[in-house]
Amino acid sequence: MLKFIITRIISVIPILFLVSILVFLMVHFIPGDPVINMLGMEAQPEAIEATRERLGLNKPLHIQYTSFLINILKGDLGTSIRTKKPVIQEIKDKYRYSLILAIGGTLVASVLGVLMGIVSAIKQNKFWDNFLMVISLLSVSTPSFFLALILILIFSLFLGWFPSIGVYSWRHYVLPIFALGTQSIGLIARMTRSAMLDTLNQDYITTAKAKGAPWFQVVFSHALRNAMIPVLTILGLRFGGLLAGSALIEMVFAIPGIGRLMIDAVLTRDYPVIQATVLFISVTFVMINLIVDILYSIVDPRVKC
């Protein structure tokens, strides 16, 4: 197992290296000037040039990239051009909010999605199957941004149950987590349903039923465990998606997460922050998928490490 993990971690290094090159080139080739953005419309040309020099932005790209890479290896992600704070500090301050949202969203999506999928599979082609599949279709096709506003209108403005902005208590997380997780509910429900239907038609399920195994045991112990592999894959991918895609939710609910940090950085061409946030999200994404790979072997012993 340890060897498997180490091998996987080593295989991640070229991916991150590639990501770092792509991100670096991308931010430097998009139009826009971070220095003019920082200094504003009134800035004098000499001062713009001086600031560019101070930030090292007038050096050739390969020199800039090399020093960027060396600094990363030293654990220095640079300083934000906009806020003048160390980027690592910026990310540390904001990452936890996005992580809570992504974990919460994944939990909501997986619990509700799996339950809906199981019920649909058991009640195949009956009212509950059709009803839940319509709900899952709705959840997949409703943009999270739109859903967020609808949730705020109903649960904050009309009912007054939950606050609509900020993150000052656990109650502040309820609506954003639901808004973020809802899209994945439908996806996971449909995936679980189809995997469960496949499994429920297997001979060993018929055998289990014939042996008189209780309904609960047949569904959850025999069928669900085997149906979980494709669902786990989706869960891993969705988590990364939710982490990277929480920006809109963070904007609507005024949550100072990493998604908002990234958007602000893109709008102001804050190169160090864009590079660091994208790298950070990539690392998380890759690590989550590594964990998923490990989970495979637990769920399905046939998958060898």
Partner: peptide, 18 residues
């Protein structure tokens, strides 16, 4: 307090949060 989304700012005012 920074609330980037205009609709959220208005709703927060109506709910009494700001």
């Amino acid at each position: 307090r920074v609330i980037p989304e205009a609709a959220s700012r208005v709703i927060a005012l109506e709910t009494g949060e700001v």
